[in-house]
Every structure is written in C-alpha cells, then in structure tokens.
Design a binder for these strands. Structure first.
Length: 936
RNA sequence: GCGCGAUUAGCUCAGCGGUAGAGCGCCUGCCUUACAAGCAGGAUGUCGCUGGUUCGAACCCGGCAUCGCGCACCA
C-alpha cells in the first residue's frame, strides 16, 4: 500500500504475486453459471505444452485479459477459461529427439512407457506454462482449467468422431497424402510449407517403343526435378493441343532402367510452353500426376517405402535412401545414355512443418474429414442476412477465412503417432487372418464394448469367426481435431445423453469473442467453425447461434527488434518472464497493448539483448511509477480520508479546475469504454496514458496543491475548499484506477486498496465500471482550459527565453485576450494558475502592461511576462518568431481564400473558420510588427 | 501467378478529406518535499514516387517502386 513514508518507486514483484494469490484463492474469477448478468465468455487459445511461453502468448494474454477484465467491470457474468494443448506431433517430435540422444527409439520403450514419458513431459511443461500465465495476472478461472487430452476432452473427441462418422463426414481410404518421413506419419496440407530450394532439372530421353515415328523421331524428352520417381512412371503426358506430339498420343515409350511400356497421353494439365512440353507421370508420387492418372486410368506404382527408402518396386535401387536413389538413378541414366542435360533449377519443395524435411506424396490409407459440406455451412453463416457470423475484427480477415473455405480439400486426420487421441475405430482382424490390412473391416464406436457389439452383429455367425477379434486402430488423431472442439468440449460438451445441456455450455456457448493470431485462422478458427457446424448446429432450442464465437479478434505477431517474427527455431524469442522480472507484468502488458494499432498489424518490441532491457516496456514501467506517485501524493493530502468518507463533492462548491478535470474524466470514461468495447485496446491505453499523465498529473494535481495545503490557521472557507479539492482528487484517482484496471490489473488493484482502504477480500477487479457523469461534461470549459494551458506554456517559454531559472520567481503575468472563456478562467482561477508559472500574480489586462515585459502571442491572446529590465534582444527574438509564424499562416490562409472556388464550393463553416483564422493571424502579425517598431 | 499489408520526425508507430502527431531518443535548464523511473522548455518531417478526383489529399482513386506476409504453383 503506498503511503507517504513508503518508497518513491513502485516495486511490482511483491505486489503482483500478492494480488494474483488473493484473486485466485478467493475465487474472484470463478463464475457461477447461475449468477446474474449478461454472459460473456472467452476460451483462451490453449498454448502447446512444448516448453514455455513466448512473447506471442504474452501478447495474446494481455489482449484477452484486458477484454475480459473490462467486461467483468461492466457487470457481465464473465467466464475466461484457460487450458493447454497436447500438441501431438510437436511433443512427440521433442520426445523422440530426446530418446535419440539417449540412443533409443520409441519402439524400444513400447507405446505404454512412451506415453508415460509424454505425460511426465506434459506435467512439467504444462506446469511451467500455467505458472507463466499466472505471472501475467491472467483473470482466468483456474478451477476450470482444461487440457486437450484430459478425460472430458477425450470423451468429446470420441463422441465427435462417432457423430461425424455417423453423418458420413469421416471416411477412411487410400489416397495420396503428405508423408513426413522424419516423424513417420501423414500430415495435413496445412502442415506442409513450400520452400524455395536450389535444385536441378534433369532432362531425360524416353525411347519410343516403336523405334521411330513417321518423322523419324526416336524418343521424347522429359524434364524432372525428382529422377528417383521415374521408376514409378506409368505415362508421359503432353498437351492435347500441342501439334508437335499430336500424332504420338496413344503410342508407347519404353521406360529406361525399368523397361516398362508406358503410354503417351494427352492432358490439359500439361503446359506446352514449358520445357519440352512432355511430362513424365508418376501417379503414386505426385499430386498432379495422381490426378492425371485418375483421368487416364493409369496404374499406381509406389516405389518408395514410408521410411523414405526405395522399395522392391524400385528394383536394383531397393534399399537406397530417396536422396541416394536420386543420384544413383541419374548415374544409371547417364551411363545408359538417356541423360540429355542437367540445369540448375530453383523451385519449391514441400517441407514438413515439424520434421523439417521434404514431405513425400505417398499413397496411404488414412482417415479423412469430408470438409466441403462443413465449409459450405460456414460460408453460409458468413453470408447470413443478419450479418456475418463470426464477425472478424479487423474485417479483412474474413476474406482470408472465406477463401480458405472455398475449394477446400479433405482433411487427413489420422497420424501415425502415439501421443494423442487414439482413433475410436476397431478393426475386425478375425476377418483378415488376425492382421490389419487395407481390406480389414472396421467399426467405429464409443468404446471397445460398443465396438464388440457392433462387430458381433455384423460379422459373427456364418462364415465369420466367432467371437470376433478386435484390434483398435493404433493411429492417433491430428492434434487440431481436439482443438477444433475446444469452445464446446471445455464447456462440458457433450454431457450425458438424455440429460439437459451442461450448465456451462448452456450459459456460455457460443463464446463472445475469440482472440488469436492470424497465423492460425486455417488451423484453428476454421476447424472450430466446421466442427461446430457438424456438432453444435442442432442444439436444443434452435435459433441459438452455433458458430462458437460471435467475434473473432485477430491480432498480429510479435516481431523482434530486427522485424523478424519471434520464434523458437529462429532463436530470437524473448522470455516474457525476463521482462516481467525487470519491469513488472503490468508494464509488459501495458507496453504490448499500447503498441497495438487498430488494424491488427504486427507489433515490434524493441529489445536490447546485451542488457535484456526494453525501452518500450520501460516507458510503461515509468507510467506505472507515475501512477504510484500520484496516488502517494493523494494519500499524503487526503488527511486520512477515503473517497467514500469524503463523499461526492457538492457541485456548487466546485472550482474551475475541478469542473475541468471532472469534465475530462467523464469524457475519458466514455471514450475508454467505447474503445474497450470495440477492441480499440491500443487507443484505450494511449488515451488513458495521456489523460493520467498530461492532464491529471501535469495540471490538475499542480492546480490544487495550494488548496490542499491552505497553510497555518486556515479559515472555514479554506477548509471547505480543501475538502472539495480532496473530494475531486479522490474521485478522479479512484475512477481512473478502474478505467486502467483492465490494462494494469495489479497496480490498479494495489493503489485502489491504498486509496479506498477497502479490505483485501474486496477487489477492484469486481467493482462496477463508474457511470459517466453526463452533467460534468462541459465542452466550452475544456476548450477554455486548453487555451489557458497553451498561454501558460507560452509564458513558461518566455521565462526560458529570458534565461530564468525554474525556481526564479517572476512578478506579474498579464493576459490580454478577446476570448471570453480564457478571460473567465484566468480571472476566476488566477490564484490556481499563478504558481504554475512561478509568478506573484496572473491576471487579465487590456492593452499593454505598465511594467516592463516580454510578450508572446497565441490565437487572439497575448501573454505578457514581467521582467526586471527590458531585454531588447530577447524580446526581439521572441517577436520575430511570432511574426514569422503569423506571416506563414497568413500566406497559407490568404492563398486558399484567394481561390474563388474555395469560397464557392467549400462548406460555409470551413470558409468562415478560415476567414477567422486569417483575421487572427493578421492581428497577430500587426501586433508583433507594432511592438518591434516600438523597440526601435 | 492471385490476394493482403506496410512505406509519416533519428527509432517504433498513430492519424485516413480541412493549417502534420505521440512515445523513445536528441538539445537546454532544473534534485521546484508525489514522482530524476521526474519537472520545465526546445529542435526535428518536399507524410515512398507518379498521375488523377476535389475548392482542398498524408488521407480517396489509378499506376509504379521497395519491403513483408498468405495462397497457388510448370514437370
């Protein structure tokens, strides 16, 4: 608690830990679904349990927590639900790497022991992450913490898989998939990243079987970047409109090294302009070739095994690794005279995101989700007459989302991994001799018992074995399958059959907003909406939206000081904890949010790696310290009273500065609430920073110091006025702390307790947002005040120009002005303002003052600052400056007014304003000239 | 190839039709009992280039350039 005798600087460490503990142990963020208030819910993007958090998580957390804390202050029934993701392939990759370092493979351990290791890893990494999220002051409900592989989420996955299968949206089949030889698993299209690499284009000759064509040609020339696949070629394709080859279509070629007769086919896919216009076709090893193969009914010949080595179909190349095989095939082709030439060639190669090796398109039997019906449903929601659902902020991301949902390909969901949700399908191996083959029948069920019943019904009796022998599919599901269920699995879906919806689901689904980075719109956002379309659109009480979030707030990435994306692999990540330890969680959060612009741009966090410091975060730390000291000042001056004991000020007793700051406060309150409400978080932060520092601290606190310290033996009037000042000060500060709370939760909680004296069990976090005092709003007064502030600034500048020390007192300051508002403020509040310019007095004058002075001009006002003796050079310099400024303005304004079209076409108020400004500038210039002339 | 974003003060970025802004940094002077993590004052910009719309453009429209991102991809 800040008190007068307490440190001058804010030390966040102890404060933050204390409030985090107090919030959590009191269950402050553990909402009751039955509690009143409009529901507001957010499920956090669950971080992967792959180690520890990075700055991107801190950023995401700062944004979400700002939003939910605001909504809580607004009186909503807020649930913010935390959790982590099991990150199937990522975690398994880490663990396998660890095993490899110990000279082991996962097969040496066996599935069960390996999974034990994985759970141990999860416990450690998950614990670290949860600890880090706590250190940020996340106002989530830890009692509802979830993990994508916990019992509830696993049940949801099984239920979802079964329902999708029942709806015909999940199927199993043999297709060309992206095979990652490093992880030994299929991966989805999204997990493949195209990378430009420097390779070669090999040109080969494929001889015509017939020996020579009518025109004497004996071969076709094809080019390839992947010579090893030639072993699986089953055709050569040309464009049907290509006159060079029209007469050869239908003939056959003899595949070199292999001797297979392969046809020449005509296919539109082939670009006649590229290369020789002839393409070798390897349907089992290339997606385009696969398509050509389908169209021409070509055989599929797989020449590579799943570990990336050549198989028996590769003949003499069997056993070679795919890259060795490439060299060997080229050498053989050259030796046998089929190699025409080799060119260096830069091209794109698909890489596995996780394995970091080129993926291999391979024929494989996998499980797929049929995405088109789901994507269609999502696109329809986006085009709903009632407005887009979900609503993207910023809007432009909805195009990205929509485009992806258009022409979407089916989603390969099975992974040949152990860490993850095991696929709830059982093979009836008794039908195929005890082994799983591509033709083994299977049943999809919710558990083995149900599977057995289904299998018995289908296969027992007759020629079939009895009892049936089942074996569960050894594969796991894509990690994003369970992530796709996150907004409802975490709320208790599916619940008990026949029972009412789980209370959390009934209360908080759909969630209010999803806050996430643009990099996972496809992986996650679209998967959640597709899953919800299949599983949530038939909720009881139709008419309830099924899209799992009303808004999707997309934010950018955190970049490092060199504008590079922060990532673990690039090694340029910054540990949020380092900055929290140095500056405090509030400072880090405030800095991150403050950087956010409206349009969801990436943010750059400056950082000095030598000293582990960040100027940006430091500036926010300084702001926290400023607030600390402003509150310390209040505590020293409130005479032991609190906002409550002081009570609301009597409106009639308010002095001008009070009315000004209360008007500003009401306006800032309204603006801030609006900004928070529309995700204008950066604007909210900047607005509060400026209000707190530049208005409350710089001006209001200074203006009331005299009233707060009326001196020895004050009269009753002075005491009453002191009380008014105290009341306003207490109100402004207490309310400011509420407005700031979503951004700086710990500091505001701490200072609020200090200011109000509320017991530890009462929380600012749970207070109501203060009502906007509409009566206090006074535009005219705010304008007059900023005019006066401008004049005081000019006066201070005159002092500086005159070379006066800040501590040096001056005599009189005279203001000559035609502005009624300014005149009024100066004459009524002269005692308040005089000390801000260190003058004996400040007052309104007409014409020139009687004392020696130097003058500054602003608008229609002049500031005269008394000086001990006239200082001609200083005065001349000042007037020259004013004159130059006025003349420049005159030139600009006169030019505009001289244009006849301007007066004719511009709105009258703009023209009038322009004329007024011109008159003012001319007056200023004239005045300056006159005074310069007087100087002689 | 298609799409998106960025280009404003030394740095990081606001502003998005009516006379160019903030933070940091920089310069000058101050330990003025809330705060030196501070106070007061100051300097700094042909708003990427180029056409156009407009009385008026950093802002709207068209082109170009540079940087970045996403999607697709020709062997």
């Amino acid at each position: 608690m800040p008190e007068a005798n307490l440190p001058k600087t804010y030390d966040p460490a102890g404060t933050e830990a204390r409030w985090q503990q107090a919030w959590e142990s009191s269950g402050a963020f553990h909402p009751d679904p039955g509690a009143p208030g409009e529901p507001f819910s957010v499920v956090i993007p669950p971080p992967n349990v792959t180690g520890s958090l990075h700055m991107g998580h801190a950023f995401n957390t700062a944004l979400i927590d700002t939003i939910v804390r605001f909504q809580r202050l607004r009186g909503k029934n807020v649930l913010c639900l935390p959790g982590t993701d099991h990150a199937s392939i990522a975690v398994q990759t880490i663990l396998e790497k660890q095993l490899k370092a110990e000279g082991q493979r996962k097969e040496d351990l066996g599935r069960e022991a390996f999974l034990e290791k994985a759970w141990a890893w999860k416990a450690e990494s998950g614990g670290t992450i949860v600890g880090q999220l706590r250190r940020l002051g996340y106002s989530v409900d830890w009692q509802r913490e979830r993990f994508t592989l916990d019992a509830g989420c696993s049940a949801a996955v099984i239920e979802a898989f079964n329902r999708l299968h029942e709806q015909g949206l999940i199927y199993r089949g043999e297709y060309l998939v992206n095979w990652c030889p490093a992880s030994g698993s299929a991966v989805s299209d999204l997990e493949v990243e195209m990378k430009e690499v420097d390779g070669h284009l090999w040109h080969f000759r494929y001889p015509l079987t017939a020996g020579a064509a009518a025109d004497g040609r004996t071969h076709l020339e094809v080019a390839t970047t992947r010579p090893e696949t030639l072993l699986g070629d089953t055709a050569v394709a040309v464009n049907p409109k290509d006159p060079r080859y029209a007469d050869l279509v239908g003939q056959t070629l003899t595949l070199p090294l292999v001797g297979r007769q392969i046809p020449i086919v005509a296919d539109d896919h082939v670009d006649a302009e590229f290369g020789t216009g002839c393409v070798k076709v390897t349907p089992a090893h290339d997606p385009n070739d696969f398509a050509i193969g389908q169209r021409h009914d070509l055989p599929l010949i797989t020449v590579m095994a799943k570990d990336g080595t050549m198989n028996e179909a590769a003949g003499r190349f069997q056993g070679l690794d795919r890259f060795e095989a490439r060299q060997a095939v080229v050498a053989a082709m050259e030796a046998e005279g089929f190699l025409v030439k080799v060119e260096p060639y830069r091209h794109s190669v698909p890489f596995s995101d996780r394995g970091k090796v080129p993926v291999e398109p391979l024929l494989s039997t996998q499980w797929f989700v049929r995405t088109e019906p789901l994507a269609t449903r999502c696109r329809e929601a986006l085009d709903a007459a009632a407005g887009p659902d979900p609503r993207f902020v910023p809007e432009r991301w909805s195009k990205v989302y929509r485009d992806w949902l258009t022409d979407i390909r089916d989603w390969c969901i099975s992974r040949q991994l152990w860490w993850g949700h095991r696929i709830p399908a059982w093979f009836v191996v008794s039908e195929t001799g005890g082994a799983i083959t591509d033709s083994t029948p299977y049943v999809v069920a919710r558990n083995e018992e149900e599977a057995r019943a289904k299998a018995e019904a289908q296969f027992a009796g007759g020629v079939h074995a009895h009892p049936v022998v089942l074996e569960q599919d050894p594969d796991a599901l894509d990690t994003w399958f369970s992530s796709g269920l996150w907004p409802f699995s975490t709320l208790g879906w599916p619940g008990e059959a026949g029972e009412a919806e789980p209370p959390d689901l009934a209360r908080w689904y759909p969630t209010s907003v999803l806050v996430t980075g643009f990099d996972i719109i496809f992986f996650w956002v679209a998967r959640m909406t597709m899953m919800a379309g299949a599983l949530m659109s038939d909720r009881e009480g139709s008419g309830i939206p099924w899209i799992p979030f009303r808004d999707v707030y997309i934010h950018g990435l955190v970049r490092d000081e060199n504008n590079r994306k922060m990532s673990k692999s690039a090694g340029n990540g910054i540990d949020p904890l380092l900055l929290i330890e140095r500056y405090g969680a509030d400072a880090l959060r405030f800095a991150l949010v403050r950087e956010v612009a409206g349009a969801g741009q990436d943010i750059r966090l400056d950082y000095d790696r030598k000293s582990d410091t960040s100027a940006t975060v430091e500036a926010s730390r300084n702001f926290a310290n400023k607030l600390w000291n402003a509150t310390r000042f209040a505590l020293m001056n409130l005479g032991g009273e609190t906002p409550a004991s002081l009570g609301a000020p009597d409106r009639a007793a308010l002095k001008l500065p009070d009315r000004w700051i209360l008007s500003r406060l009401a306006r800032v309150n309204r603006e801030t609430a609006e900004r928070y409400g529309i995700y204008g978080l950066g604007e909210a932060a900047k607005g509060l920073y400026e209000f707190a520092w530049n208005e409350v601290c710089d001006w209001y606190l200074e203006l009331i110091k005299r009233r707060l310290n009326p001196g020895e033996n004050p009269g009753t009037e002075a005491l009453a006025d002191q009380r008014t000042a105290r009341q306003v000060l207490a109100k402004v500060l207490a309310e400011l702390l509420v407005l700031l709370h979503p951004l700086m939760p710990h500091l505001s909680e701490e200072l609020w307790h200090g200011l109000t004296g509320e017991p530890e069990g009462t929380f600012l976090a749970l207070q109501p947002w203060p009502a906007v005092d509409e009566m206090a709003l006074d535009d005219a007064l705010e304008a007059s005040f900023s005019g006066v502030i401008g004049l005081i600034r000019i006066g201070r500048n005159l002092r500086a120009v005159r070379g006066m020390k800040p501590s040096e007192k001056i005599g009189q300051v005279g203001i000559a002005t035609e502005n009624d508002g300014i005149r009024q403020v100066i004459s009524i509040a002269s005692d308040d303002f005089k000390s801000l310019i260190k003058a004996d007095s400040i007052g309104i004058i007409t014409g020139s003052p009687e004392y020696k002075s130097i003058v500054g001009i602003s608008g229609t006002s002049q500031v005269h600052v008394e000086v001990p003796e006239s200082d001609v050079p200083a005065l001349r310099a000042r007037l020259d400056k004013d004159l130059a400024k006025a003349e420049k303005e005159i030139k600009g304004l006169a030019g505009r007014l001289a244009n006849p079209n301007f007066a004719a076409k511009a709105p009258p108020e703009v023209v009038a304003e322009c004329r007024a400004n011109l008159a003012e500038a001319e007056m200023q210039a004239e005045l300056a000239r006159k005074r310069l002339a007087d100087l002689g």
